[in-house]
């Protein structure tokens, strides 16, 4: 099978204007301009097969969005060859756009004041979706996530989760061959996150759509992707199955507690509580050697390795001892994983 996205030895260099300081500097800038070159993407080669779901990770400014812009035809590479659906994207931006879909977690592409169905109708025309396909898709969406009840709701009246859901449905409406997703679950609660993940996974399987997913939430990648590509400082530093990485993120969980204060809250109080919890857990889970208890401002934070002690058991023990006012289960960020990769010497 031919890869649907082929990138070989892609470089992208930006010219960045060096701005001088102060009023005098900005007057000088008017007459002579100095540029510095910024290498955003450096010799990236990537083949992605049809139907694959790839997690595309990296810290901010690593070159993720630059790569994606090149794949979508918004940006032309400085060097190297790129083919998407057998086309050179930047030479055929509008044609290429016909075969791709894009989802941004934070900003909707739907018409804000209108019911979703109206946005869908416009998209139907813009992408020239045949009546048949359009109807089938709407029915399928309803079946999949009960989207029917959202169709007549105005986007501005929706919750963030509902909006994201509709944005994803909109991106798949014209049966694109590739869908790019940028932080699709950002800001959503746990149940909505899992709903979105199920939806994306179903759409990928039933339509055979290739999905490129960029995210900071390791949970998204874990739930959806078999393959992970990590880019840092413009270079691909990891491109392999997720399984090899699991030891870096799979077993660790972070949980934060806030306890009921006996007296007026002070810093010392929280530190004291942290000490108490540390002593308690050391006693209850002697085999949990890597378990960490730290103080995070008003919170007491626990880092638990589930292979040593089950998280639920730990929470249980804490609850027996102290009155919890607030609790927070944290996602493992991709940054943490990347940091661990560097530390662990996988490369």
């Amino acid at each position: 099978m031919e890869p649907i996205i082929q990138m070989s030895h892609i470089d992208k260099t930006f010219k960045v204007l060096k701005r001088r300081e102060g009023i005098k500097g900005s007057i000088l800038d008017l007459f002579s301009r100095e540029h510095t070159l910024l290498q955003a993407v450096n010799d990236v080669s990537l083949d992605i097969m049809p139907g694959e779901m790839v997690g595309y990770l990296g810290p901010n400014g690593a070159g993720k969005s630059t790569t994606i812009k090149m794949m979508t035809g918004v940006l032309e590479p400085t060097k190297g060859d790129i083919l998407v659906n057998g086309r050179v994207p930047y030479e055929n931006r509008t044609k290429n756009a016909q075969d791709i879909g894009v989802v941004f977690g934070q900003r909707t592409q739907l018409w804000w004041a209108l019911p979703v169905i109206e946005s869908f109708k416009i998209l139907k025309d813009i992408y020239r979706i045949p009546d048949r396909v359009y109807k089938d898709n709407l029915e399928y969406y309803d079946e999949l996530v009960g989207a029917g009840q959202l169709y007549h709701k105005a986007v501005r009246e929706m919750s963030l989760g509902q909006r994201t859901l509709c944005d994803i449905l909109a991106a798949f409406l014209h049966n694109p061959k590739v869908v790019f997703m940028d932080e699709p679950t950002i800001g959503l609660d746990v149940s909505m996150k899992s709903k979105i993940r199920t939806l994306v996974s179903n759409l990928n399987q039933s339509k055979g759509t290739t999905v490129i997913l960029t995210t900071h939430d390791m949970g998204d990648v874990d739930a959806l992707c078999k393959r992970i590509v990590i880019i840092d400082k413009g270079t691909v530093i990891y491109d392999n199955e997720i399984e090899h990485l699991r030891k870096y993120f799979g077993a660790y969980r972070t949980v934060k507690f806030k306890f009921k204060a006996n007296r007026k809250d002070t810093k010392g109080m929280v530190a004291h509580e942290a000490d108490e919890i540390r002593a308690l857990l050391a006693y209850k889970f002697p085999e949990a050697e890597t378990l960490q208890v730290t103080q995070e401002e008003q919170w007491v934070q626990l880092l638990i390795n589930e292979e040593e002690a089950r998280m639920m058991d730990v929470i249980h023990s804490v609850m027996e001892q102290k009155e919890i006012v607030d609790m927070n289960l944290q996602e493992i960020s991709t940054e943490k994983v990347i940091q661990k990769i560097y530390e662990g010497g996988v490369l």
Binding site: V74, R93, T94, K95, A97, V102, F104, R107, Q109, I126
Partner: peptide
């Protein structure tokens, strides 16, 4: 400034027109 402009770049029609 909000970054919303990018959404216009991904449609299969002329950008200015859209």
């Amino acid at each position: 400034h909000s970054g919303d402009f990018i959404k216009y770049c991904f449609r299969p029609i002329n950008l200015f027109f859209y």
